[in-house]
């Protein structure tokens, strides 16, 4: 038996050596560059400014790759290409980063490709911003927030992990997927973007959020309604017209902050009057 064990061990060590050899020859450099880019893409908005917006952040994320592809004046020219005005959604930006990496890699090997990288980026920023803003800020985050904060109101600390997981699982997955797909497919990333149907998912998430908020408001109204008396619970139904009244006020362009503070003052003075009358 010890002989068999040592044979397995030697097989395993040969396999490991072969693997690491392959990794270092083919994949290692690329993986390292992709990893560095992914890591740096987390700071895309670190130096956000009104003039360049995410320009410096984009260059910062591209820098490890560019330094690998180019040297000397070519490197400076490549850096200038990526220091231009840039602004898109911070998560879907990894998709543009991945595709730009691929295009720059080809260019450094002398293959100019079908499309100039600067033009390609310009074409992608707007639509990516639109899809990302809609999906993440308009769909996913409100949904996660309604779930998490709803749980939070019941006093459960589960609110925090639920909120973080509901938001971050799709978020981190799309971040990594975007970079890898972008790098694999180059300018053909446009097709993937069409296939994901993010705007349609946004619509579904928004509808779900509205339903969740309705559950929450019903729960809040029931909690506020005077308990004990049989007719007391009916008063809670007033919550619904109240919400629609507030919708009307917000649609008129009155700031929610102002409405909230006015509501607070209204309640305080109402209670003060009740106290003075001795009710």
């Amino acid at each position: 038996m010890p002989g068999c064990g040592s044979a397995v061990l030697s097989c395993w060590s040969t396999f490991c050596a072969w693997c690491s050899d392959m990794m270092s020859r083919v994949r290692y450099n690329r993986l390292r560059v992709l990893g560095a880019t992914l890591w740096r893409s987390l700071t895309l908005q670190g130096s956000w400014s009104f003039d360049g917006m995410q320009s410096l952040g984009f260059l910062f994320a591209m820098l490890p790759a560019l330094r690998r592809y180019y040297q000397g004046p070519e490197l400076a020219a490549a850096c200038r290409r990526h220091l231009r005005h840039f602004n898109t959604h911070p998560v879907l930006a990894t998709l543009i980063l991945g595709a730009s990496l691929r295009l720059e890699e080809h260019r450094s090997q002398g293959d100019e490709g079908l499309i100039d990288v600067v033009k390609f980026k310009e074409a992608l920023v707007g639509p990516c911003a639109a899809m990302g803003d809609g999906f993440f800020w308009g769909g996913l985050r409100p949904l996660a927030a309604a779930l998490g904060a709803g749980l939070g109101l019941t006093g459960s600390l589960w609110a925090i992990p639920v909120f973080l997981l509901v938001y971050n699982l799709p978020h981190l997955w799309l971040r990594v997927l975007g970079l890898l797909q972008g790098y694999r497919r180059g300018y053909r990333i446009v097709e993937s973007l069409q296939h994901w149907h993010l705007p349609d998912w946004t619509q579904r998430l928004k509808r779900l959020t509205v339903v969740l908020l309705a559950v929450l408001c019903a729960w809040v109204s029931a909690a506020v309604a005077p308990a004990g008396r049989p007719t007391g619970a009916i008063w809670g139904l007033l919550g619904l017209p109240l919400v629609f009244l507030l919708v009307w006020l917000v649609r008129r362009g009155i700031s929610p902050l102002l409405i909230g503070l006015a509501g607070c003052l209204l309640i305080l003075s109402g209670v003060q009057i009740c106290l003075m009358q001795g009710w």
Binding site: F120, A123, G126, M131, G134, Q194, T202, Q203
Partner: peptide, 11 residues
């Protein structure tokens, strides 16, 4: 390219 992308961004 731009036309396709813009149309894809609209629900």
């Amino acid at each position: 390219l731009s036309r396709l992308l813009m149309a894809a961004a609209v629900p």
